[in-house]
């Protein structure tokens, strides 16, 4: 296991602990917000998604070198994710209506949010080739296997759309 895995697994665990502290219903609100953020990012930054051409057009206004598209996209996406996580966790937040909670599901929801948040940042930093020069190949087998299972690597935009709609329905049903 290398430095990237150690740090991101720790962040993931911390999100689990935060989940227990905040409770299930608040965590589900954060899950919804993070899924919306991922949907937006997938729609715009994934080359197979319908919004990618618009994104490239927008980028070309500010970035002249096409080789810099991916790093710039990754940095913007990471900042956007941090902003969305901030909105989801700080102050008055979207909360699912519900009474009671149990620590097991709160922990699970926290871990799910950690996977969505930390996993997506990992995905974009990996795509950008780890800017800053502190991290570089060779990566461990654990890294190369996990990177294939990060949220944005496995969830296409249409599946994220289904998940967002599902969360909305669950919010209304409660």
């Amino acid at each position: 296991m290398g430095p990237v895995e150690i740090v991101f697994v720790t962040v993931w665990i911390v999100f689990g602990i935060i989940g227990v502290a905040r409770g299930l219903w608040r965590e589900l609100g954060a899950t919804t917000m993070l899924l919306i953020a991922l949907l937006v990012l997938q729609l715009l930054t994934n080359p197979k998604a319908p919004g990618y051409n618009y994104w490239k057009l927008l980028l070309s206004l500010f970035v002249t070198d096409p080789a810099a598209y991916q790093p710039v996209t990754s940095i913007i996406a990471t900042v956007f994710l941090l902003l969305m996580a901030f909105i989801s966790y700080e102050g008055e937040t979207l909360t699912f209506p519900g009474k009671g909670s149990n620590w097991f599901f709160s922990l699970g929801a926290g871990l799910l949010n950690g996977y969505l948040f930390a996993g997506s940042i990992w995905f974009y930093l990996d795509k950008a080739g780890w800017p800053g020069g502190l991290i570089g190949p060779p990566f461990t087998p654990f890294y190369t296997n996990v990177v294939k299972l990060l949220p944005l690597a496995v969830l296409p935009w249409w599946l994220l759309l289904i998940l967002v709609v599902f969360m909305m329905i669950m919010r209304v049903l409660k």
């Binding site: 299930l24 589900l28 899950t31 699912f96 519900g98 009474k99 009671g100 909670s101 149990n102 599901f105 699970g108 929801a109 799910l112 599902f166 969360m167 669950m170 049903l173 409660k174």
Partner: peptide
């Protein structure tokens, strides 16, 4: 997970 969490936690509350 979401279905189980919302259904089972609500039942406990």
């Amino acid at each position: 997970f979401i279905v189980l969490a919302t259904r089972l936690s609500a039942r406990k509350g």
